[in-house]
Computed example of a mutant assay.
Amino acid sequence: MPPATRSAPLLLWETGGNHQVEDGPYRPVVADSWLLVNGRARGYPRHWRRFAASVEECGVAPERVAQFRAAVTEALPRTGSWFPRLELHAGPPQRLALRLRPVPALSERATAWVWPGPDPRRRPRIKGPDFPDQERIRQAAREHGADEALLRDESGRVREGAFSTVWWWHDDVLHTPAADGRILPGVTRDLLLRRCQALGVPVRHRCAYLPELLDSEVWITSALHGIRQVTHIDGRPTAAADQDRLRDWRAHLDALMEPVPDPEAIRPPRFNEETQ
């Protein structure tokens, strides 16, 4: 299969083959995405494990995901900056797809706005099914002059960003909500928590009320932007960031960018009657 290009924004895989279509009314029920720069990505196997676990809940066999992974890995560009997205489209028939997107503008800082209503997501631990609500909320944040929206739990504590994980530093302790089924188990989140464990950085898993966030150094993380410092929430400034620490943690994430694997190394063996 030839490498995907900007002229093929969506590649749909069917049993026994794939075909290119123009972007249309296809909307994912499961998705996953990562930053790809000159053929290098961060946490590539982790993104695939999360996607495989999510689509398996929808009845997609692991063997089919393995074939899809090899085909996608072959199709990914090895030059330029991209933000590819894996998708499962609802059936019948169910279809696996790669949406190849050029990377949008990246930023190191962000402003946030607190969504005033309850968290509308029904399946927050899976990426994709709640995209319409998340996109609506993020658009509302933009209309209020912010880059990201913050979602709260039933007690009014900040739980997660519309498309990001929330972190804050207080007395050299890093805080972030627990992966208790009510947030997305982010790949970048897991990579940062693993570094905390390796360095002995204390971590507390909990949600915070807005006044505590305003008195803290606040980060939001995502596969696209990595770590962004939140400078304002609802127009009010947060505490100043420790710039040396921030640079160090960003450098750590940059160092985790690795070449995507050779497709032949991960291609599953072909199954036929002779191998039974």
Results as ranks from 00 to 15, higher is better:
271 F>M: 09
219 W>A: 01
217 E>N: 02
206 R>L: 15
259 P>S: 11
233 I>M: 06
206 R>G: 15
221 T>I: 01
251 A>L: 05
264 E>T: 08
216 S>M: 06
229 Q>N: 13
219 W>Y: 03
227 I>N: 00
263 P>V: 00
225 H>S: 05
257 M>C: 12
252 H>Q: 08
226 G>H: 02
255 A>I: 08
270 R>G: 09
247 R>P: 07
226 G>I: 02
273 E>K: 13
265 A>M: 07
205 H>Y: 15
271 F>N: 14
212 E>P: 11
244 D>Q: 12
223 A>C: 09
257 M>K: 11
254 D>P: 12
213 L>E: 07
221 T>R: 04
261 P>C: 07
259 P>Q: 13
237 P>D: 12
246 L>M: 02
224 L>S: 08
249 W>S: 03
268 P>C: 00
245 R>T: 06
248 D>L: 08
238 T>G: 11
268 P>L: 00
244 D>K: 10
212 E>A: 06
210 L>T: 04
263 P>A: 01
263 P>E: 05
213 L>G: 01
265 A>E: 14
208 A>I: 03
227 I>H: 01
227 I>Q: 00
273 E>G: 12
242 D>K: 10
223 A>T: 04
242 D>F: 07
212 E>C: 06
268 P>V: 03
255 A>N: 14
229 Q>G: 12
208 A>D: 05
258 E>H: 06
230 V>Y: 07
251 A>C: 07
226 G>M: 02
267 R>K: 13
239 A>M: 13
222 S>G: 05
254 D>F: 08
242 D>C: 09
211 P>E: 11
243 Q>K: 13
273 E>T: 15
216 S>Y: 05
236 R>I: 11
243 Q>I: 08
221 T>W: 02
221 T>P: 02
276 Q>S: 11
231 T>N: 09
236 R>N: 11
256 L>P: 08
251 A>I: 06
207 C>Q: 03
210 L>M: 05
245 R>G: 09
237 P>A: 12
269 P>Y: 01
275 T>G: 11
258 E>V: 02
226 G>F: 01
208 A>T: 00
240 A>E: 15
215 D>G: 13
276 Q>M: 09
211 P>H: 12
276 Q>R: 15
249 W>Q: 06
248 D>N: 14
220 I>N: 05
223 A>V: 03
220 I>S: 04
246 L>H: 02
261 P>H: 04
253 L>I: 06
215 D>H: 13
268 P>G: 01
262 D>C: 07
263 P>M: 00
252 H>G: 03
234 D>A: 08
226 G>L: 04
262 D>Y: 07
252 H>Y: 15
240 A>L: 15
211 P>M: 09
222 S>V: 03
256 L>A: 06
251 A>T: 09
260 V>S: 02
263 P>T: 01
237 P>F: 13
241 A>S: 15
243 Q>S: 13
210 L>D: 06
235 G>D: 10
